[in-house]
Design a protein around this nucleic acid. Structure first.
Lengths: 204, 204
DNA sequence: CGAAACGTTGACCGTTTTCAATTACAGTGG
DNA sequence: CCACTGTAATTGAAAACGGTCAACGTTTCG
């Protein structure tokens, strides 16, 4: 979610000396790490898309997560010796690498960094839960409305979106089309008013 | 998710002297805390159900999360002065209260506790992401299958469930009926074999 | 023993997905 | 400055799918 994204960014960058942060480029299909490998670093995805996959013993795979720009990867690895899943780039991607040793050192010595890392995780938990709650709303219009209300400010509430509706649709678990239809219906029903990227929520 | 739940439990209990942990009982409709109040404690829900609600400036409300037994509440509040949402019991509930001062002290002085808290959060992030990924699978049979594969072990993979399918259905965002139909279809299609609470996944 | 919850399946209905087509832009190179 | 191109934004129609309601046997537990 946007709020956590930005918060995450700041917190992350405060964790270590940015000079030590290397960027690694991956081609489509290239692995960032594999299950069982010793954990050498944590990552933040700058651009592209990376898929976290757990391979089953019979060779089949389960997708655990698809990370997009701005997200951090494998935070739990900070507490593990080996990675518990594979990370493979879907498309050409760039990741910032934070050596685990750096992180551990920072967490041990620097109270500020430690706080930042934990705060980052707590924010992610909060946002992920909110997102899950959103997904539990079956009706497309209600879901879109709930999403709008979550990011609305002022009275009467107004939401300004800085992304495309197509991206929003993916985030809230609807198709692009369903989202547009939901917006149209909400507007016809007088629950929202759209003016470009501004959406005003009407009290009912 | 079960794995994180149990991990969470242990980590949480390691954080503070359990003697300092008070239990508070709430009636249905009673508030545990309100938006804007000074953060005095963090909580873990022992039983019941608590709804986290953000009230908008125009009086309407958005549900951020519905917490159930075993879950921790408002972890992010550890880093805030005031609560950012309301917490209201849906049904009679019991919560363990961990005074914020205790937590802060523990995090500052006890490296073990600090690590535990952060590890707990990282595990939750991992599990929430996995759950989100599951929800993104539209097809009920595929979703159920993915859930089974996530918790399968051995080769050929076998999943043993220690919960009712009704609970599983709620966790993966399907109705009880849809889940049974999905199981029936998977079995007819030869992708799984059920023997009581054991489910064997068939290679395809 | 009886009530409540679980497990299971069928039928119907409403919604969303899909597929398809059209419009509206924003950036690009000529 | 303008076709040219790719993506976003929209809307329509039909098909697929899951939710809801209903019914019933089974298990669990006080």
């Amino acid at each position: 979610m946007e709020t956590s994204m930005s918060a995450g960014l700041e917190a992350w960058h405060g964790l270590v000396i940015s000079a030590r942060m290397r960027v690694r480029r991956l081609e489509a299909g290239e692995a960032l790490f594999r299950q069982g490998e010793v954990v050498t670093a944590l990552y933040r995805l700058q651009g592209g898309r990376i898929r976290l996959i757990r391979c089953l013993e019979d060779g089949t795979a389960v997708v655990l997560h698809v990370a997009r720009a701005g997200e951090t990867l494998a935070e739990a690895s900070a507490f593990a010796d080996a990675y518990h899943c594979d990370a493979v780039a879907d498309v050409p991607s760039e990741v910032e690498c934070l050596p685990k040793a750096e992180l551990v050192a920072a967490l041990a010595s620097d109270g500020e960094a430690r706080l930042g890392f934990t705060r980052l995780l707590a924010a992610q938990v909060r946002d992920l839960r909110a997102r899950a709650e959103l997904q539990s709303i079956r009706s497309a219009p209600e879901r879109v409305l709930a999403w709008l209300r979550m990011r609305a400010t002022d009275n009467p509430p107004v939401a300004v979106l800085e992304r495309t509706w197509t991206e929003v649709a993916a985030e809230i678990g609807l198709t692009r089309e369903a989202t547009y239809r939901a917006l149209a219906k909400l507007e016809v029903d007088g629950r929202i008013v759209r003016q470009g990227s501004r959406v005003s929520l009407q009290a009912m």
